[in-house]
Design a protein around this nucleic acid. Structure first.
Lengths: 230, 230
DNA sequence: CTTTTTTTATGATTTGCGTCAGTTTTTAAT
DNA sequence: ATTAAAAACTGACGCAAATCATAAAAAAAG
């Protein structure tokens, strides 16, 4: 199962910094032309289909990137602080957001004018190449998630998400989840009831421990095995 | 249903030409350092997980780009001639293919050394920006397919694929399918039997006409409606 | 042309998982 | 503290779609 080790929930690509590749002059240009905005929990940062005037950099918080659907949305990634968002809107012509983004927790976003960003791409090839790297890393993760959601059944999908949250977002086998079971059901493309049932299965099998919002992964090898078997 | 109009099967992004942005000198470099290779029907062009030494340009044929899974593969896109493949392997360090590619029909591929391609990206910012465009267009289509496969049920998924084949690949409402029902089942993430049954449903409802390998879309508005309803 | 293999087709059976309906617990608001 | 609302949980039920079994048709190989 080649994709079992690939992250299936997050865009954590942007630990690849890109701004350090800019000249001092270019950095200053970005600093002078960008602004930061605060969002409360649950607010929408950008809306699918709307005109993309900015590239966004998440300075603080946790957000979801999702395609709006009826009746259910498809969550593409969870993105923690330190990451660029909206890069897929970079086109030569006018561009629109492919997805909506809203916050799980209180967040701070730096808005970088997309024209200035494009200008940097055209002026600074190393910067452009770095952005290509970031886009490709993001695509790689997107494929991992794609595979998980289309080829695995419920237990495998939930195992994937728990492992990914633990490894990529919280970097600990024990963490406080700021997501509801309903959020998890969106993430795994399953019903809320199924999330609850499978969480209970995992708990009964001593694979995880749940205390209210706190989750501890007790048996990661078994989660990996469940993920691999699908 | 916002993604109903998005293509759900093909990477047809590369009608955006990129080579015309190269200088004559750069074009010559590509011409002198690349080779073409012929593949028979069913052959593998590149293998997921292997070292990516080349970017590939499909000069002739029809191929599938897919993630290998057990027991079923996940087809990411169908790609017709005139398109670049393997761009997602562009990394600053050594890179591996995220997916395998194999041919549906006899195909010809131009292999462009990945180091030379990277060199072009670093030297020619307009070229690099065009590649970003192509990658983003590809991602956009990938999301459309992602949405289709995860949020729609069988009839909607098959309608999506038939519409996409008609509009993007064959550019006609009548075409000879070089794919088997089993290929279609891989494309739609359903069982072969389900493909056959739903094709029959569509045929009985006079939505499509099937004569052996030849398919004609008789009622495209209804297919659109089935696609939109999921 | 004949045989073998692949593909297409169809019905019967099973099952994974969503939906619904109702209860308990937690969180938020007053 | 009290009430209201949201989230978590549980069981019963139904259905979409996979699996299984088997046969017919088409394609490929001999």
């Amino acid at each position: 199962m080649p994709y079992s080790s690939v992250s299936t929930c997050v865009s954590f690509v942007y630990e690849l910094t890109c701004f350090d590749l800019l000249t001092d002059e270019e950095k200053e240009l970005v600093a002078n032309t960008s602004v930061t905005v605060n969002y409360k929990k649950g607010e929408t940062i950008c809306k699918q289909g709307s005109f993309a005037s900015h590239i966004m950099y998440l300075e603080k918080g946790l957000v979801k990137v999702y395609i709006e659907g009826n009746p259910k949305d498809l969550i593409l990634t969870i993105t923690p602080k330190g990451n660029l968002m909206g890069l897929q809107a970079l086109y030569e012509g006018n561009s629109i957001f492919l997805y909506s983004i809203s916050t799980y927790t209180e967040s701070t976003v730096r808005l970088i004018d997309i024209q200035i960003f494009k200008q940097l791409l055209r002026k600074n090839p190393n910067f452009a190449f770095r952005i290509i790297n970031i886009l490709n890393e993001s695509t790689s993760q997107s494929y991992g998630r794609f595979f998980s959601l289309t080829q695995k059944q419920l237990h495998g999908r939930l195992a994937d998400i728990l492992l990914c949250l633990s490894r990529k977002i919280f970097k600990s086998e024990s963490f406080d989840l700021p997501l509801t079971r309903s959020d998890l059901s969106d993430l795994t493309s399953m019903s809320t009831e199924s999330v609850i049932r499978i969480m209970k299965d995992f708990k009964d099998d001593k694979i995880i421990e749940i205390d209210n919002k706190s989750i501890t992964l007790l048996d990661i090898p078994r989660l990996d095995s469940i993920s691999a078997r699908g």
